[in-house]
Write a protein that binds this DNA or RNA. Sequence first.
DNA 1: GGTTGGTAGTCTCAAAAAGAGACCAGCACT
DNA 2: AGTGCTGGTCTCTTTTTGAGACTACCAACC
Lengths: 136, 136
Amino acid sequence: MDSKIINLKSKLDIYKAMTDGGNLADCPVRDVIQGLSGKWSSLLMAALAEQPYRFGELRRLVPDISQRMLTQTLYDLQRDGYVHREVFPTKPPSVEYSLTDLGRSMFDALQHLLQWAEFNHDAVRAARAGFDATQA
Amino acid sequence: MDSKIINLKSKLDIYKAMTDGGNLADCPVRDVIQGLSGKWSSLLMAALAEQPYRFGELRRLVPDISQRMLTQTLYDLQRDGYVHREVFPTKPPSVEYSLTDLGRSMFDALQHLLQWAEFNHDAVRAARAGFDATQA
DNA sequence: GGTTGGTAGTCTCAAAAAGAGACCAGCACT
DNA sequence: AGTGCTGGTCTCTTTTTGAGACTACCAACC
């Protein structure tokens, strides 16, 4: 009887230890990553890493983003300290977005993933095709 | 008269050149990144990078994921070739998920970003607090 | 032999997020 | 006066996500 109880107990302990020890569920990483895991975040970071852009330029540069999502994603990136927003009081006032130091630092890390993606997208596409074939 | 037309034209050309030349909107990177930009993808990758897990183990390991999203995210990761799914015909059949070589390769790149996040989450939290203060 | 608990999921419905597109005010050029 | 540019906001619809009930099978327990 006890053997089973011990089994169960040790299992729970293992899970608890994992949750505490692993860096999976504890907030710091997730808290930061969630801000970058949006559909447009990495794309806009890549754009702004190249050079500063104005709102309308970004909209034209990424034609399939809606104004609403562009506004909101830039707002989120600004809030997290990656992007600097500067308003110029020209006749039609223009707004320029640029990376902060923190943003550039983060983009350096993100860059690895982007390069991996560029390099291995054939492998991923092949995997998808193969998977879909076996499922059909 | 012509000067303005030329201005407009050159502007359009610039945008066009950007769209073609930049790696922002062209699909290869986006196609791959979108698969990783889900809310749970990087978290599950981190878990499986540590060791293989079974379905129920992952569910307990990440308590705030719903079964639906766990099923679907694992499915997507498997489809993109990052995760291997193996069914063991035990009495209650168990399913083990593990990283493929492609998955490990991708996680190496992702790891940079995760480490950056762990290292800089104080700066990000500070930026958020400061931003929220000025907006209030 | 009926209850409980473990396996890995699916199904349905509500809530949240994203996309599409109208609308705004102000100014410049025609 | 009409058109187009600036950077947005507002509303409506569609998609995605989350919460949780439900399936089916088996094993142990009472």
